[in-house]
C-alpha cells in the first residue's frame, strides 16, 4: 500500500463516494456517553446503518460554551456517568470491532481543547488514531493557535476539521480551509448549537464564499434538524451536520425510560431521523445533477 493510500481517511473516501453518486452527505453528531457508552455504541451503529455518512462523537466537557441547552444537558448527563476522553476513544475502538457493516463509518471526535490538551497532543493523537478515529474537530481552537496540534494529528494520519463562521472574512476562510483536511465545517449562523426552524438567508452567500477558497468538501451545521433544511442545501453543500435534533431524540426516549427499552426506542428514533434526512440528501442528487460543475454553483 502506498503512503498516499495510508493518508486517505475514511472521511475523504466517503466524500469521494458521495461526490460520485451526487448525494448530499449526512454528518450525525451525538454526545458520547449519553446516557451510557453502551447506548452510544448502539446509536452510532444504528445511525450508520440508516445512512449517516460521518459520525461526530462529542467529547463531553464541563464548560461547553459553544453549545446550546440540548447538548449542554447531554454533556452533563455523560459526565455524571463518568465519561472521559479516554473512554470516548475506547468507544471508537468498540465501534470498529463491532460485527456490523456500519462499523467502518467515518468518525470525527468533536471536543473542546482542554481535555485533549490535558491528555497531551501526542498521546491523544496516537490513541485516537490507533482506536480508529478518522478526524478531530476542536470547537475552541482556531488556525492561529493550532500549529502543533495540526502537525501532531497529521503525523498520525488524522484529519483536522476546522470551523468556518458567518463572521469569517474571505482571508480567514482561506486560512481555515488551508488548515482543514477531510472536510470544512461551515457554521450556518452566528450562535450556539441547537435546532432552529429556518436556515439563515445569508447562508448561500456564505457557502459561495467558502467554495471560492477551497476544494474540500463542505459540511454545514448549526440549526439543521429537518429534511427540508437538507434539501435547501442541495447543490450548495456536500453534507449537512445534524446534532441537537438527534441528541434531543436520545433525551426524549431515555429520560422517560432509562432502561434497555428506552435505549432501543432512542435507537429507533435516530434510525428514522437519519433515514428521512438521508432521503432528502439523496434527492439533493437531482439538484446537484442539474449543474454540470460545482464550481459554477459557487459563482
Amino acid at each position: 500500500m502506498s503512503a498516499d493510500v495510508h493518508r486517505t481517511t475514511r472521511i475523504t473516501r466517503r466524500f469521494a463516494e458521495l461526490r460520485d453518486s451526487g448525494e448530499m452527505g449526512i454528518v450525525a453528531y451525538i454526545t458520547a456517553g449519553d446516557p451510557s457508552f453502551a447506548a452510544t455504541l448502539k446509536f452510532v451503529l444504528a445511525m450508520a446503518a440508516a445512512g449517516a455518512d460521518v459520525i461526530e462523537l462529542g467529547v463531553p466537557f464541563s464548560d461547553p460554551l459553544a453549545d446550546g441547552p440540548t447538548i449542554q444537558r447531554a454533556s452533563e448527563r455523560a459526565l455524571k456517568n463518568g465519561a472521559t476522553l479516554v473512554r470516548v476513544i475506547d468507544l471508537v475502538r468498540e465501534i470498529r470491532r463491532a460485527n456490523s457493516l456500519a462499523s467502518e463509518v467515518p468518525i470525527v471526535l468533536f471536543s473542546y481543547y482542554n481535555p485533549v490538551f490535558q491528555m497531551g497532543l501526542e498521546k491523544f493523537a496516537a490513541a485516537a488514531s490507533a482506536a480508529g478515529a478518522d478526524g478531530v474537530l476542536i470547537t475552541d481552537l482556531t488556525p492561529e493557535e493550532s500549529e502543533e496540534y495540526r502537525c501532531t494529528l497529521a503525523a498520525h494520519h488524522l484529519d483536522t476539521v476546522f470551523l468556518g463562521a458567518p463572521t469569517s472574512t474571505a482571508e480567514r476562510l482561506e486560512k481555515i480551509a488551508a488548515c482543514s483536511s477531510g472536510f470544512l465545517y461551515l457554521i450556518s449562523r452566528t450562535g450556539v448549537t441547537g435546532a432552529k426552524d429556518a436556515l439563515p438567508d445569508d447562508l448561500p452567500a456564505l457557502l459561495r464564499r467558502a467554495r471560492r477558497v477551497t476544494q474540500l468538501p463542505i459540511a454545514v451545521g448549526f440549526g439543521i434538524s429537518l429534511p427540508g433544511h437538507v434539501s435547501v442545501l442541495g447543490g450548495l453543500a456536500d453534507a449537512a451536520v445534524v446534532g441537537s435534533a438527534l441528541v434531543s431524540e436520545i433525551e426524549k426516549a431515555t429520560t422517560a425510560n432509562p432502561n434497555a427499552a428506552g435505549i432501543d426506542a432512542a435507537a429507533a428514533a435516530l434510525t428514522d431521523r437519519i433515514g428521512s434526512l438521508k432521503d432528502a440528501g439523496r434527492s439533493g442528487l437531482s439538484r446537484r445533477g442539474a449543474t454540470a460543475n460545482r464550481g459554477e454553483v459557487a459563482t
Partner: peptide
C-alpha cells in the same frame, strides 16, 4: 494567554 475561542468570535 492566547486566543482559544469558537471561530465566530475571532473577527470580533
Amino acid at each position: 494567554g492566547g486566543r482559544y475561542v469558537p471561530e465566530t468570535l475571532m473577527v470580533p
